[in-house]
Design a protein around this nucleic acid. Structure first.
Lengths: 332, 332
DNA sequence: GTGAAAGCGCTAACAC
DNA sequence: GTGTTAGCGCTTTCAC
């Protein structure tokens, strides 16, 4: 049987209250008792049962992070950023994967209901705005990376439209005027906004939009990046550059371009979005728009923790700065 | 304030014991009461507080998974396999990243001490055998993917030696006799055993070992895969094939080979280990040894849960079957 | 089939 | 500075 606070108290010849006080760093305990208690704790190998503590404190100091898939270094980097900050301020981060399945996501949100965690940040969600809003009424949640239209929930993302705008402007400045777009799901806010940025960049440079240059793919089915490239290569008037709304799509496009005998970086420039680890592993390396993962993670956790103890919840939308990173796939 | 079992009992006009019984599916409750209770639960939006429940039950039905880095699809696939099985049998999986940092790993193991989780599986660890053994004395833990020499702890891995042996034999059967090895840390059991498999395969085919063909790199610093390739390419008598102990190392080697103007798959064949998602994203696609992630995940969770309720803990070493996967990087 | 009550391990209000 | 005690929300004997 494991040792409890009572055992420590008995062994040390003090009350459980005193033990609890040294455990929680209360000042109202003499140095001699404190020392005695600490020694006894050490000797017995005691470690407080957090179920008891958390039950009493009505808080766990644990934050849940859910994500659609864990096989994506973008998410994992953000989680790392969260952990870094959270640990510093006494919180733990645990993470789970929804596999884009609402039942699984529901199951995970149960941790909120059953008080296993103090709050949750959703790195993408299957929930719609209504469901999120009613969830946010009773629990502390936040969105990160991917916002949801109409959700009045604390959200941290890059400014997707502006980031895409910058990316496409960069391509234009390199002399490209025939620029293809590989977009993702029509329902994904990030893809919608990145497309908006693409269109705006063309408009601002007086480049007419060519609908042939817009290919609809999917975040979840990266193989479509290959199909996109095949399609673009089949056009009579081929684009000289491609902007894809995710690195994975860009990588697939690059792979297909190489297979088609196109030299990526000179024959065709390709730019992704996210700056995942693999961007530097590929041949050629992939130009992209960096999402500042550590900063995003820190910010969302910070704001979420603030909400824990606040009566009027902050449900604002926070933008965090992106950065254009040029590598070989755009000839840099 | 959130609704408790008392509220439900009061509203339904029954005792908390009865509510608890329907919550836990006890048969000793009349259908009429049960129905009433269920309706009340629904009406009040009640959801049991697991801190109270777990405290009383002395179990959480949660298993912790730790890994050195979460930016590695191999781990994430294994976790997915664990989740699949665990959920089926009423357990939840939560995962954390140690960043190869013992303090962080300690902090996470606290979840074991403070009873936040019922057990833990370590997908690689910074702990040595002694520390693991003493941990295993008091808590249910398991190793997965990467064993530790001398640890008497439940472990599930592929048979690394045999898997590497098969991989190298495959290269030999393709006619290669000059085969380079990119190994990882001298301390990593998996790398040691994969090297042993490499050596055995050469020996069994009467190919003398050429020490020039063995390059020491690191799992954690994949860039060394590039250095390895550079080195092999600089040799007068270059190897015609390379076996790397991880896909990431193999990918880096492939990248460098391409940069050096070598056609991977014909000029030189390269084979990795793990079968991570990116193997199919690369150009060329990467031949490798598949670790059966879902099966590994299921097996380790199954055995671990068995241990929860067993007095004589199973601390055996379980092997799970690997599979050779041939793709373009070996000319397939 | 049901309820009263003890108690899981802990913290915190209160009394001294 | 320290101890006593109530109670967090739940499950589970035990009695009826």
């Amino acid at each position: 049987m494991s040792v409890t606070i009572k055992d420590v108290a008995r062994e040390a010849g003090v009350s459980v209250a005193t033990v609890s006080r040294v455990l929680n760093g209360s000042s109202n305990v003499s140095e001699s008792s404190a020392k005695l208690v600490r020694e006894t704790i050490e000797r017995l190998g005691y470690s407080p049962n957090f179920l008891g503590r958390n039950l009493r404190k009505r808080a766990t100091n644990v934050i849940l992070v859910t994500m659609p898939t864990s096989d994506h270094s973008l998410y994992m980097k953000i989680v790392a950023g969260m952990q870094l900050y959270a640990n510093k301020v006494g919180y733990d981060i645990i993470s789970t994967t929804t596999s884009q399945n609402t039942q699984i996501e529901d199951r995970q949100m149960n941790m909120l209901f059953n008080r296993t965690v103090d709050g949750a940040v959703l790195l993408g969600t299957t929930y719609d705005a209504d469901k999120l809003n009613s969830l946010a009424e009773n629990y502390d949640i936040a969105l990160c990376c991917e916002g949801v239209e109409g959700a009045n929930v604390l959200t941290v993302t890059v400014n997707d439209e502006l980031a895409a705008y910058d990316a496409v402007c960069t391509l234009i400045k390199k002399g490209h005027r025939k620029i293809g777009l590989i977009e993702a799901e029509k329902t994904a806010v990030s893809s919608i906004q990145r497309k908006a940025g693409y269109l705006k960049a063309l408009e601002d440079h007086n480049i007419p939009v060519n609908l042939d240059y817009i290919y609809s793919a999917s975040y979840d089915d990266p193989i479509q990046g290959e199909a996109a490239m095949e399609y673009f290569a089949s056009l009579e008037d081929k684009p000289t550059a491609i902007f894809a709304v995710s690195d994975i799509l860009a990588m697939k496009a690059i792979k297909k371009a190489s297979e088609l005998g196109l030299k990526v970086g000179s024959d065709i420039s390709i730019m992704g979005f996210d700056n995942i680890t693999m961007c530097e592993m590929m041949y050629p390396t992939v130009s992209t728009v960096e999402q500042p993962c550590v900063r995003m993670g820190k910010l969302v956790i910070q704001k979420l923790i603030d909400n824990f103890s606040s009566s009027n919840k902050d449900n604002k939308y926070y933008y965090v700065e992106h950065k254009i990173i040029l590598r070989e796939s755009t000839g840099d």
